[in-house]
Computed example of a mutant assay.
Amino acid sequence: MSEKEVTVLPKTPRTPEEQLVWEAKAKIRLLLNLWDLGEGKAKIKKGDLTKRIVRTGEVSKDYEAVLTGLREGGAIAFSMDKRVMVVEITDVGQQVLADGLKNRDSQFEFDGSQIGTRLGNALLRWLRLQDAPVKPKPEVEIIASYERFKVVALKVYDRLNRDYNFDNLVPIYRMRRAIAERVSRSQFNEWMLEMQADRLLILQGGEMTEITSDKAEDSIKTSLGELRYYATRLTPQS
């Protein structure tokens, strides 16, 4: 049974107080449906969301103020995908949804004597997910010495070169991002230049296809201000 079949809505205009309560409920119901349709993270078509939330006796225009308020509050985000408007729930929206469903002071409740199967099942999925155990993130090894950095950097180089067929011209920005927070940016630069001085790698400039500002920033700049985009290994692969 669909939500439209079981929801009974008042035919008389709402008072200002009733409108505020309706919008508070609609906000949480909209976020719950968006969370369910997108499985908590995916973008969905705005039209699909509208079909899901508009009930008997309502029109999509009724939800414009609710959508605008959620967007301005950072709870949802709109974007274009192949000329189609899509919407997704943000981290802020996840928290707003959690507060609306769990907070005792929340005004959210289901209207009428019954609720639609889809909305009820969405709530069940959300509740079960909250009870699921959270896997702890594995600890990240911090690279504290040049000797350790050499080992890690060469392994990263070999893996990227093999997996992406870079033909011994591995983008430095890819190496930096693979090593990520295990070493600071300045230390990465210093130790990569030291590996070049030790004739383990050659850092090369040239041209990079589809260069962007973030790729350039994640490459290496020499003391003369010249950018080095690629690394080539001089030592044999172990």
Rank of each mutant, 00 (worst) to 15 (best):
I202Y: 08
S184W: 13
V140H: 12
V59N: 14
Y146V: 10
M85G: 03
D214K: 02
S2E: 09
A65C: 12
L201A: 02
L123H: 09
A75V: 03
A24G: 04
T68E: 15
E5D: 14
M85L: 14
G120E: 10
K215S: 08
L32I: 07
V87Q: 03
Q95Y: 11
K41L: 13
G74H: 13
F188P: 02
E3C: 10
R52G: 04
D218M: 03
I28H: 01
D36C: 15
L30R: 00
G100V: 07
D36A: 14
G93Q: 11
E5T: 15
E210I: 01
A180T: 11
K46A: 12
G74Q: 12
V170T: 06
T209F: 12
A77E: 15
E139V: 14
V21H: 03
W35Q: 05
Q187P: 01
M208K: 05
K221M: 01
A122Q: 06
Y63D: 03
R14I: 00
V86E: 02
R104S: 11
L154W: 06
L129C: 11
G100W: 01
L70W: 09
D111S: 15
D163E: 15
M80W: 13
K43L: 13
G205V: 04
A42D: 15
L119V: 08
N189P: 03
K135C: 02
K4L: 09
V170N: 01
Y164T: 11
L101M: 13
I143K: 00
L234D: 02
Y164K: 09
P171W: 00
L34T: 08
R185L: 06
A178L: 12
L201C: 06
L124D: 14
A122Y: 05
V134I: 09
T50M: 11
K61P: 04
V152N: 06
V87P: 00
I202C: 03
G112E: 05
K51C: 13
R83F: 07
G93W: 01
E88N: 11
R176F: 11
I143E: 04
L169G: 12
A144F: 09
M175P: 04
K155S: 06
R14V: 00
F110Q: 11
L119D: 01
I53G: 02
A75I: 07
G47M: 12
M192E: 02
R83M: 06
I143L: 09
I143D: 00
L129V: 12
L9A: 10
Q94A: 11
R162P: 00
N103D: 15
T50G: 05
E181T: 08
Y230W: 02
V59H: 13
L31I: 08
E109M: 07
I143V: 05
F188T: 03
I220L: 04
G73L: 09
P136M: 05
F188C: 02
V96I: 06
R159A: 14
S60A: 15
P10G: 05
D163C: 07
P16R: 01
K11T: 11
R118W: 12
I89A: 13
D62R: 07
W22K: 00
S223C: 02
Y146L: 07
K45I: 11
M208N: 05
